[in-house]
Write a protein that binds this DNA or RNA. Structure first.
Length: 123
DNA sequence: CTTCTGACA
DNA sequence: TGTCAGTA
């Protein structure tokens, strides 16, 4: 499929699809007319990439983890340099920190909302 | 009409 | 990341 269809099917701007390729995350083939040619399996791959990106992993790391990614949303255990393992462990810890921060902010909002609700009810 | 590369208020 | 340009 060409970039337009992949974009629609993944909800990813073509601009980003080309960017991911530039970063070595995708390597689509080329049609005789020069257009990029994406295989079906790349639909899932893009999902993987976006998911990892959303969690905060830089494209640099994703490029190394990519060969370990499986179709759905799982990460298959395969090779993995000690360096990559350590990097991922640090990323995991950063995720924990973000989760804790989000939880605090959520609780703060809950408290605020409770106040607003109470005052409105009183009046 | 769709995609391509390169550039930047 | 968005977007505009000038092509093929």
């Amino acid at each position: 499929m060409r970039i337009g269809e992949l974009s629609r099917r993944t909800g990813t701007p073509t601009r980003l699809l080309r960017y991911y390729e530039e970063q070595g995350l995708l390597t689509p083939g080329r049609l005789p007319n020069g257009y990029r040619d994406y295989g079906e399996h790349l639909v899932d791959r893009v999902q993987q990439i976006r998911g990892l990106l959303d969690v905060g992993l830089p494209t640099r790391v994703i490029k190394d983890v990519l060969p370990c990614l499986d179709t759905p949303c799982t990460i298959t255990i395969s090779d993995a340099s000690e360096e990559l393992v350590e990097l991922l462990r640090r990323e995991r810890d950063r995720m924990d920190a973000r989760i804790a921060c989000l939880a605090r902010n959520r609780d703060a909002i809950d408290a605020y909302l409770a106040q607003v609700t109470a005052s409105r009810g009183a009046v």
